[in-house]
Design a binder for these strands. Structure first.
Lengths: 339, 339
DNA sequence: TTGTAAGCGTTATCAG
DNA sequence: CTGATAACGCTTACAA
């Protein structure tokens, strides 16, 4: 079929260099002193033969796969992309490789991947899910693997997390809008349950309104889904009702864009008729026109911290703080204006 | 530190089931006949002990890692995301896992990853690069691994490729624009060299113009880069020159959006003043307002075919056609109009 | 149908 | 400092 020329092994190197394989092992790992002369000889042979240690064999004896599993709900998403940029980059730095699993946000798929990754001997798992329910209890209860979840509350003991302070972020952005003269703000959340910050978003929104002495209209809080189309449809209902808010705050850039598109498609002007602000400040926010105002998350840093936490844990270091909160920002662009 | 309870191995199963490890191996792999009675007994023990075969040990003896490496230039990109969606999904179907490598489009990084993947014993590589030069000759010349490149001409013998017919696509879109009354079309390409279809784009564009009896203005063909910002700047130069075309055809959606943003940011209307069409028809095209007209690529299918080709090759099947061309489409939306 | 034993390519222990 | 040699967990001739 094709020339399967046997790869060169440590044995070949040993033979050619006239030393034992242990010596070769020692020089490539620099694990024990080896005389300079032999060391040089071995390196020369390695070079000559183009020898590369077989990581599989190494894994077998070391019981370390140097693999970290990453489960994400979608690859076609700037947030996920940026997160992966960070995770992949830092992991490589520590000589870890990333095994990618795309769950499409499906619960069963997630569970299957969790188990698959464990059986594939990954040394840790980074788990990103937009699911609303606290899930996969059985898995998390029995696994020995370190797991860090992105942008969630820890649903179980022992799970590490990295996110921003959602309550503070939502409150700050809402207050900002109020400051700009908005008294009727529609909030489109992307989930209600505890572990995805739904309640924090609600509290942040309501507290900001309360502090400003504004009324809280229950019908101005709607629950969407991280996808654009759902927000579009939700916005459509509001448009049809004829009772437009002066501002819309969506807890996802995609949803913000969905709402904005709906408004513009129906003849309204953003931000002249309605201001729109998003959440995350992904690339989409600056690509879109009008440029989207948004709560910004340090997405790259979140990924970077997540992967570092895992590796630290693997290396046996103690994790002093397993629930990391990073600072957020508020970026006002063209999609919002004073009322 | 944490309870490192030894994982259960094939030996444990064998002992508990009172059979040899070969028998256990036979039942889990269904490789040789085993009496029903013993088979059941073994399965029961496996269940009871929660035994999972160690894929690392298996890889070592089988010399198959069940890993496929994927090198991409960016993760924050709808094209790449969709491609990965396909690759990951299909790979899992064949029990292959994906090792993700993000080169950031850096040549040295790409080369390093190519070598890393090979040394990690991956069984094949899918390589997506936006680089313009024909690169990594030494690697491709000596590697035994099957490699498929996405959206390129094969730069070397033995490299498989999957793409659309760029010449036909560009020509068709250009003709479409001409049909709509456009006589002055600015083309922003994302590369000049042979293996990224730069010449095909040029030929397609020029042939369409020729067939319509239109003049070819050399200054209406500019070379950008797949990134948005470069197209923005390029467009800015044209805006500053005061000599606006009636339509812009960018060979990347991102570049189309970059050009469009530039125009809109400088007070021009799209498509009233200038029509814009993109290339690829990524999600960005339908998210953006005005919705982008574009040449559509079957992105998911391209990824799906790429991964299937690799796996077929690995399985020893002959690849009859190693340079696959898929059909494209033309999607006209809001960013273009009759002149 | 089942078991024994020889690898797969490394690392690590233990003598020398 | 160096070299045998025993693992690591699994598959697969080869025997029985």
């Amino acid at each position: 079929m094709r020339s399967e020329e046997m790869a060169v092994t440590i044995k070949d190197v040993a033979k050619k260099a006239n030393v034992s394989i242990s010596t070769v092992s020692r020089v490539i790992n620099d694990s024990k002193p080896v005389s300079d002369e032999i060391k040089k000889r071995v390196f020369d042979v390695i070079e000559e033969l183009g020898y590369k240690p077989n990581p599989v064999a190494r894994s077998l004896v070391m019981k370390k796969s140097k693999l970290i599993g990453v489960i994400v709900p979608d690859l076609k998403n700037y947030y996920v992309g940026e997160l992966l940029n960070a995770i992949e980059e830092i992991a490589k730095t520590y000589e870890y490789d990333i095994i990618l699993c795309n769950s499409y946000g499906d619960l069963d798929q997630e569970k299957r991947y969790l188990e698959l990754l464990e059986s594939k001997q990954v040394e840790g798992i980074i788990f990103l899910t937009f699911q609303f329910e606290g899930v996969h209890k059985e898995f998390f209860e029995k696994t020995q693997l370190p797991v860090v979840m992105i942008n969630r509350e820890a649903p179980f003991e022992g799970i590490m997390t990295v996110s921003i302070d959602h309550y503070a972020a939502v409150k700050e952005m809402t207050s900002k809008l109020i400051e700009m003269g908005h008294k009727d703000i529609l909030m489109i959340r992307n989930g209600e349950t505890k572990d995805v910050f739904g309640p924090d978003h609600l509290r942040g929104y309501e507290d900001a309104l309360k502090e400003a002495g504004l009324d809280i209209r229950k019908d101005r809080i709607v629950d969407g889904h991280f996808q654009r189309s759902v927000a579009y449809d939700l916005m459509k209902q509001v448009v049809d009702s004829g009772d437009l808010p002066t501002a819309v705050f969506a807890t996802t850039d995609s949803m913000a864009v969905g709402a904005s598109n709906c408004l513009m498609d129906h003849g309204y002007k953003v931000p002249d008729d309605v201001s729109i602000v998003g959440f995350y400040d992904t690339d989409l926010a600056s690509i879109y026109r009008p440029k989207l105002s948004a709560v910004s998350h340090p997405i790259y840093d979140i990924g970077a911290i997540a992967i570092r936490m895992i590796i630290k844990y693997i290396d046996g270091h103690e994790i002093k703080d397993s629930q990391v909160r990073l600072p957020h920002g508020i970026v006002m662009r063209e999609s919002s204006k004073e009322k």
